[in-house]
Design a protein around this nucleic acid. Structure first.
Lengths: 217, 217, 217, 217
DNA sequence: CATGAATGAGACTTCATTCAT
DNA sequence: TATGAATGAAGTCTCATTCAT
């Protein structure tokens, strides 16, 4: 409202634009879904006109794909390295992985992407495929390596790897949905503390996975 | 043009119309989402004209709500009674509940409703509220009663009830999403046997929940 | 302006619509060209709304192609038969052909099509090809047959058939352009009586084509 | 950023700019028509930015008119003088005129202007009027003078001057259209050698026009 | 009841034109 | 003078909804 600095209407900042538009689009896509989001609203939120948006993205669909790409890229870039160098029990490794996930994905804006993909995957097979190869596959492989390490080292009991992986994925997925689909509508009535739930759940799973003193007696 | 004898073809099954429309709408809404589903396609699939649809549903939105309502209603009608009379270990009760869920919800066409609610809840708060009161609350209460019973009877160790409930809900949710959001796009590449997964997961949770005879089974 | 008969706004006449739209579109396309013609204007002139137009033609481009197709089709349907049965001098046959052309093409609304094709052929190769195969080729063949007949019968002197054909085509083309491109803009200042010109031109050509008493002495 | 020595690159050929833009615009207008030509494409082809174009031409329409004006101006500048001094038969004069036309108009890039006028005259009456006064009128008068000379000298038989003129104009017009409207689309299938056709056509007309020594040549 | 032709608001996208730098 | 980012009016097309038959 203050007109102190003469903010130029046509500020020349071509490099900043795409990011601003992407951010605006992300929020609106997550909130309203692809179809119900009007490109004009995206432009408006980014502080530019309709036409400007099309200067950077050739179509609404391209904008959408760009949003997903931007938010997902470099999600698993250095994770693998980190885990390769991990020293300690495999149980701690699982705990660490879950905590990392919350810090870099579940608890961040990136989580909205998951809801977006769930919601629109069927209309945009390209997006689904991208999500599969960029998130699901590397994520599953990472978790799989941890579980395998545990079995190899005699920390975890033998198990079906796929089931083990999805056991870890399930609570994460639940939280993503909760956060973006249910909570915004009915939040105060069904509270759920994500981190506490994640921790409890992890321990519960580890209890089932670890050999511990199960067969001791 | 000739109206010689009263052709009963037209009035074939007037009363069935709303149901046929609801079925057609359900399938299309699940497959394409609310926005991408055209009312004309619904009418066509139901074998009537576009105009006829508006004879039974005042608007697309009403049609959508009717679909959700129809699919959710009477989902928990007699479940509670069944469980109230249950005799046996609480672990078996959990196993039974999970199996029932698969039989009546997860494994059936009704499961699409979950995807629908996830995807459209934000656009239709009414739907979200309806889902909450008709599915989430009764479902949670049911599971809560089972877990409480287990604790009361000394079968399960003390736990935070909410977390326990969601531990059971998580794998179910994962499966619903898998089925309706990811699988249709990327199925063959990431196979997951739902029932086997459910069973494994249940046992894993029970292993963590049960107190005493952990290593017995 | 008279409201004698209660003309129903939504008169049900699905079969009449395409023709009305085609007529309206024809006039506007000829007058303003493809790009400068707005579909809404076409609809308006046909007395319907924008949406109605798209009920019958999937796009502006399809509408355009339909216009051309409709106006060109059946132009050469029975001409050939007529000419095959012609008896008389080949010179009379040429005169007859030119007169027929004026009656069925040059002097009618169909002539606007020619201008349309000239104008838009480059943006619509499909149209150009259609015009070639439906108009140019059959037209040229017809004229070619007449000239060949004249040569075979010793009425015309030997000539390059292609040049002969285009000699006949040239004045026709000039008239088409005159009518649709120049005349509407600068008419009163450069008068040209089409039929008289055609006749003069035909006789002039025939004078050059016929052997007559050229080599008599 | 450094302004050490005055870089003459930018001011390379300021004065050439309008000409380059006009050339680029001419080509694109001929190729795609007025509406389908984007000013950005013109600027790009001229090697400048969109903004620069508007420095020289206030609007797309002005650019178009400038193109036509430039190409038409000085087309008939010294022709008349040339013909006034002509010595020889009037038939040769006609042959010479036709050949000149091909050399300076029909066979050159200037011919595209005719197509442009044909296609866009209705949208730009100003252009039509300009074409009339700059091309049609002087052209017709020139041809008219030649024909009149022929009649005055007893070389040509009496004729309607207007018809005579258009008899000469017709094949030229046909060629222009052929070149710019049809040939680019359907060329290889309907070949026509312009110069040979022109010559044949001219002789044919002369045969009809000349009185006496018809059979001499 | 049923139909389906007709409507028109609204969405995406283009592109001539402007203007701060 | 030159740039090119930004604008916004205008155009094509979609689709939920209406209504005469």
């Amino acid at each position: 409202m203050s007109v102190s600095h003469p903010t130029p209407r046509r500020s020349r900042r071509k490099d900043a634009r795409p990011g601003e538009l992407l951010d605006a689009a992300y929020e609106l896509f997550v909130e309203h879904g692809y179809a119900a989001t009007r490109v004009e609203a995206v432009a408006q939120r980014a502080g530019v006109s309709k036409g400007t948006l099309f200067l950077y993205f050739t179509s609404k669909e391209e904008l959408f794909k760009a949003v997903v790409r931007q938010r997902l890229s470099s999600l698993f870039v250095n994770w693998n390295a980190e885990f390769a160098a991990f020293e300690g029990t495999s149980a701690d490794m699982v705990r660490y992985a879950v905590r990392q996930w919350w810090q870099h994905m579940g608890g961040t804006a990136a989580s909205g992407i998951a809801k977006l993909v769930m919601t629109e995957a069927r209309q945009f097979p390209e997006i689904a495929e991208f999500y599969r190869s960029e998130v699901i596959v590397p994520g599953n492989e990472l978790l799989g390596r941890i579980l395998q390490r545990g079995m190899d080292r005699g920390e975890f009991r033998p198990m079906d790897l796929t089931h083990g992986i999805y056991s870890l994925v399930a609570p994460m997925t639940l939280l993503l949905l909760w956060k973006h689909a249910m909570a915004p509508c009915i939040d105060p009535q069904l509270p759920l503390d994500p981190q506490a739930f994640l921790e409890t759940q992890t321990e519960l799973l580890l209890g089932g996975l670890t050999l511990a003193d199960r067969h001791v007696r």
